[in-house]
């Protein structure tokens, strides 16, 4: 249904959004006394953020290489 480029753009978009969401959630915790987070949850977020950053890095590399070849 989708071309490779469409899939790639979707992944790129998804990973940017995911990182942005993690940042927003951390920001809310920082700014609000009501929001709490356990150490485990925090570690999980950190791991997910690292993983997402790696994926995003790869997506960007692929995106640039496709565009350069074109």
């Amino acid at each position: 249904m989708f071309t490779d480029k469409e899939k790639l753009l979707h992944d790129l978009n998804g990973n940017i959004v995911r990182l942005g969401s993690i940042f927003n959630i951390l920001n809310k915790i920082e700014n609000s006394k009501d929001q709490e987070i356990s150490k485990n949850e925090m570690n999980q977020m950190l791991e997910d953020a690292e993983q997402t950053a790696i994926l995003l890095n790869n997506d960007i590399k692929t995106f640039i290489s496709i565009n350069m070849n074109n």
Binding site: G14, V17, S21, I25
Partner: peptide, 10 residues
């Protein structure tokens, strides 16, 4: 995506 879901739900 649990993070986006939580973010937008907020």
């Amino acid at each position: 995506d649990k993070y986006y879901r939580k973010d937008i739900a907020g």
